[in-house]
């Protein structure tokens, strides 16, 4: 599991996740993701490269999204695969961070 960040618009950070967000993957990115989420008010989590999400991965995402929301910020999930989207929707995490499928939509959703 890898986490790369990029500034995609003024004040908007995209965190690109790649690999399996299972218990080991979550452990690898946990600290970095939480620091990131704790310091951003507009966060896009690009999940196109994530092949699997387990409950520990959902926990990492959830805590991050809640940290963003606690600062009145906004987070979105960008382009999960259909399999990963099923898991995200089933957990209800998209009620914290909506799912979108284009970068412009993602930026629009977190700005303002």
């Amino acid at each position: 599991m890898q986490l790369e960040t990029e500034e995609v618009a003024s004040g908007v950070t995209k965190a690109k996740l790649t690999g399996r967000l299972d218990i080991d993957g979550a452990h690898r990115i946990d600290l970095h993701f939480n620091v990131l989420a704790g310091s951003r008010r507009a966060l896009i989590v690009d999940m196109a490269g994530v092949t699997f999400v387990a409950s520990m991965g959902l926990r990492t995402l959830m805590l991050g999204f809640k940290a963003v929301a606690s600062k009145n910020g906004k987070a979105v999930i960008l382009s999960p695969t259909p399999e990963v989207q099923d898991v995200l929707v089933s957990s209800g995490i998209d009620m914290l961070a909506p799912i979108v499928f284009s970068l412009p939509d993602a930026i629009a959703a977190v700005v303002g």
């Binding site: 959830m62 929707v89 957990s91 209800g92 995490i93 914290l96």
Partner: peptide, 11 residues
Amino acid sequence: RNPAVGMLVGR
């Protein structure tokens, strides 16, 4: 569909 328990209180 409802969120996982513990995630969103009061909903």
